[in-house]
Amino acid sequence: MNLRGKLAVEIEDPAVAEALNNFKASVSAWSEAAYNRPRTVVNPARPGWRPAASWTLGCVLAAGSLAGGVYEWHHRQDLARIAAMKAAAQMTAQERAAARQSAPASAPIEAAAQPTPAKAKANEEDSNLLATVDSDVSREVPAAMEPLAQLVEENGTN
């Protein structure tokens, strides 16, 4: 006996058997229709703003690092220039001090205390040079702090 016959015997009731046959046919028809239905594959479109945003962010980062590098280079250049000027001033001062020490000890103390015109000129040059150095250093103060720096300078001179 085939399975269908076995099922009919198992069910006994012809009305139930008929209903189950219809049920099977219905499920098969539905399944076949669903299985063979045309399927549309939708290609998920990438939003256009994403690559644009990545490019923008990349450009901003590149420009930022370039600008940072240039600023740092300029800053180092300025610092080196200031350091060279300070070293030159220090060297001049040391030379002068050495020249003073090598001068004759018999010279009157008053004469040493009273600066000669040459010495006065040299002192003036020194103070001018130091003033230049100070002003260069003070330029390193951020622009926003410039008025405060000037105020401090004025108070110092008063």
């Binding site: 046919a25 219905s26 499920v27 098969s28 028809a29 539905w30």
Partner: peptide
Amino acid sequence: AGEWLPNG
């Protein structure tokens, strides 16, 4: 679901 029936 019950609407599906083969056209016999």
